[in-house]
Simulated assay, not measured.
Amino acid sequence: MTSASPASSYNIPASSVESIYEIKKSRFISRTGYITNKGDAKAFLAQAKKDYPDARHHCWAYQFGPPHSPHSAAMSDAGEPSGTAGKPILNVLQHKDIGDIMVVVIRYFGGIKLGAGGLVRAYSHAAQLAIENLTIENRTATTSIIIECDFSQEQTVRHWLNKSNGQNIQANYQQKVDLSVELPLDQLSSIELQCKALGINIREI
């Protein structure tokens, strides 16, 4: 297995924030928060819809994982003309050094149409405002791996993983031992070399 070399840590939202932007009587409420998977994103969007049930649109974008190599990214125009809402929000996220983040922009229509260009600018600005007001913190980037070793090698491998700050170590005992672990990315190369030296199989989940 060849390991990549992404950043060993990255910025994430420390908490959820909201910002409000108004233009031509339309009100854009942007909510930004921390997510790590699609389930988080679904719940974050559902809460926004619950808090603002009478809004015309709930447009959104997210990316989780390190910002320069995210594990997943998605967006939705939520009824706005194609490409005028979700894409501008995602574009803002992709130019910020923040991972594990979602932005939902809730729009209350003010009766005056903004046009496609106006919508793109409005959603971009709303997302930008939310991120400017965001408090961030640093997170160690991790990867989930499984190490397949002989029973006689288990304690040696566990020692390596503990020294490398491996978290959530779990064992599955069959013909061999499968040890699953969440490992800091900057420790992956070292673990790979140690496993290779003893002929131990390792794979990322």
Rank of each mutant, 00 (worst) to 15 (best):
S5E: 14
S5M: 13
A7T: 14
I12M: 00
Y21T: 13
Y21A: 05
E22C: 03
K24C: 04
F28R: 13
R31E: 14
T32S: 15
T36D: 08
K38Y: 00
A41T: 13
A41L: 01
K49A: 01
Y52M: 07
Y52S: 05
A55K: 15
H58I: 03
Y62F: 14
F64G: 04
G65K: 11
P66N: 13
P67F: 08
S69I: 10
P70W: 11
H71A: 15
A74I: 01
P81A: 01
P81M: 04
A85I: 07
A85E: 10
G86S: 09
K87L: 15
I89A: 11
L90K: 06
N91S: 15
H95Y: 03
H95W: 05
I98T: 14
V104A: 01
R107Y: 09
R107D: 06
Y108N: 10
F109S: 04
G110R: 02
G110L: 02
K113W: 02
K113T: 05
A116Y: 00
R121Q: 10
Y123A: 07
E132L: 01
E132T: 05
N133K: 13
T135Q: 15
I136W: 01
E137M: 07
N138R: 14
R139C: 06
S144W: 09
D150K: 12
Q153I: 00
Q155K: 05
H159C: 09
L161E: 08
N165G: 07
N168C: 07
I169H: 10
Q170G: 03
Q170Y: 04
A171E: 11
N172S: 12
V177H: 02
L179C: 03
E182R: 12
L188M: 07
L188S: 01
S189P: 00
E192R: 10
E192G: 03
Q194P: 00
C195R: 09
A197W: 08
L198K: 13
N201Y: 07
R203P: 02
I205L: 13
